[in-house]
């Protein structure tokens, strides 16, 4: 992949968020548990929110990406992957979402390392931190709700 400007990168990231949104909308349709439809509907809305945020950054309405380092519980590192299916439960949904955020994070880290342009790398690192933040949100939910007794 070739990125010529920060705008290109952000466009790419925005398209990724849109993809994620579409996937959750799809999942909300296929799952059989009525309450899980709400879960995925909510996740889809969150991805939309991320998209809007990136668009605002692109338009210069928001300051650039943060350079704060987010705490990483690395829960998704050692839990098994989930493939979407109709019988998913809440644990599967959270697990699926945190794995998806982890993939996005890994992608931006890889892209950042692939480039020699320091400015471009900074943008990728920023995006990676954003994804890490999203991952952290799901990992915290997993830690609090699913692993309540552990």
């Amino acid at each position: 992949m070739e990125f010529n400007s920060v705008h290109d990168i952000l466009d790419f990231a925005i398209s990724k968020e849109q993809e994620a949104h579409d996937l959750y909308v799809h999942l909300a349709e296929i799952v059989s548990r009525p309450e899980l439809k709400k879960t995925f509907g909510e996740f889809a809305q969150m991805e939309l929110g991320h998209r809007t945020r990136l668009e605002k950054i692109k338009a210069g309405e928001l300051p650039g990406l943060p350079d704060t380092v987010v705490q990483d519980l690395k829960l998704s590192d050692f839990l098994v992957d989930v493939s979407p299916h109709a019988n998913m439960d809440y644990q599967d949904a959270i697990l699926f979402a945190m794995k998806a955020e982890k993939r996005a994070y890994d992608l931006y880290i890889a892209l950042g390392q692939a480039t020699s342009d320091a400015g471009v790398r900074q943008v990728f690192d920023g995006l990676a931190q954003e994804e890490l933040k999203h991952k952290q949100f799901f990992e915290a939910e997993y830690d609090d709700v699913i692993l309540e007794g552990n």
């Binding site: 548990r33 009525p34 309450e35 699913i146 309540e148 007794g149 552990n150």
Partner: peptide
């Protein structure tokens, strides 16, 4: 480690 709800017995219109 923890436990969750199971609503498969519940009519969809109610669970929803």
């Amino acid at each position: 480690i923890g436990q969750g709800a199971e609503h498969s017995w519940m009519p969809e219109e109610i669970a929803e």
